[in-house]
Design a protein around this nucleic acid. Sequence first.
DNA 1: TCTATCTTTTTGTGATATCATTTTCAAAAC
DNA 2: GTTTTGAAAATGATATCACAAAAAGATAGA
Lengths: 229, 229
Amino acid sequence: MLKNTPNLPEILRPSDMTAQEYIYQRLRNSIMLGLIAPGNPITIRGLAEVLNTSPTPVREALRRLSTEHALKLLPNRRIVVPQMTPDRFKELILLRVTLEEHAARAALPFITERLVDQVTVLDLKLDQAVEDENRDQLIKINQQFHRSIYTANPDQVIMPMIESIWLQLGPFTRIAARNVKELYVVDHHKEVIAALRQRDETALLNSIAADIKGGVGHLHADALERILG
Amino acid sequence: MLKNTPNLPEILRPSDMTAQEYIYQRLRNSIMLGLIAPGNPITIRGLAEVLNTSPTPVREALRRLSTEHALKLLPNRRIVVPQMTPDRFKELILLRVTLEEHAARAALPFITERLVDQVTVLDLKLDQAVEDENRDQLIKINQQFHRSIYTANPDQVIMPMIESIWLQLGPFTRIAARNVKELYVVDHHKEVIAALRQRDETALLNSIAADIKGGVGHLHADALERILG
DNA sequence: TCTATCTTTTTGTGATATCATTTTCAAAAC
DNA sequence: GTTTTGAAAATGATATCACAAAAAGATAGA
């Protein structure tokens, strides 16, 4: 029996997707949803066995995730999901605000009515996920909501960085929110949509910052110490 | 004879550095200095032969660089340094300003007199590099200058992202600046140092933004079209 | 001279083999 | 009962091998 077998939900695999890419996507998805516990080692051979492949593509996928700081290589060459600290958490949230404000500002000129409609539909799905207390779905839809706004800008260099922040926050999100409703005390998405409709930059940036800080971002030092310690 | 053999200056290799890591660092260095021409394909076997290793560690290094968007995997699986476009360039510069302003703001509380002294020394070295018209040295020292400021903040999540931007701008920097002095029309580093000494946040952010925009960042659409087209 | 088709070579991907290091775990020593 | 030690197993790193897809060249036809 394998020890520490991580929880790796299956995902869609297009026929032309390489093994390495598929493994990468699948691991990424698991980390983003906080399904891999920080600290306990991930082994190449263990994953290869679970995924029914050879170690080669697994190694490459792990390296990619390390480069994005979703995984960490310890000095003894062990691979783990990094542990969160209150200071690192604070840095991640502040950087997330900066990056997403920047992305929103750059995307605003490209926002169409059609896009706002799409975003509105996503917000409805999000409400449903909260209603259902479906945390995985909530995380996914919330990311889609943000992503679909920022990618309106066709010249993308920032989105991969935002995704990297999401990845780094992923493992913590699950730990922090004991229930879904705790994650979304206040929903700022309606304000975001309103700002988009009016092409109001200031309101857009404010509501996005509020959304980030109001989600997991609202956790303060004392709460963090409790959760992380 | 190998075609397209890239220019890969040797770098320091600690005895405990893995082959993969060494290859990664060496390629990274070359890309950062603009020594690998955008567009023409890099082959795994070709690099392995030049570096006297097997394809395995080369592949991993290339994957890491792709993840950082320093390299691009084309649909036909060819690997190249991505081509710059005027729009992408503009996005990269704007994002660089945002990220480095953020990093500088976060680092300011940790700035010590000792650090300012170190930065001052780097600035002198930088002047020397301009004097010598040593472009590679200039690029390296300039990065050290910025890096040493931002890493004063011990909780680092932003530095890797800034490095990724530098990497993406690297190939272009070389093409754009036909001579070193063109790269540094105005030197804003003295202003940065003064702002650091006075712990003046506003002045610090302004001088850093000016430094970025005054370097390669000053190139405007028409100049870019000329260079890139 | 140019284009189209077929063959050869090169290339990326993934599996397997090998080696050195690290971890594990049980027996021995305290 | 706790620590030390040492053999066995597991693991990461790299080299090599096998295969299919893509690129490059060569040949034939217009």
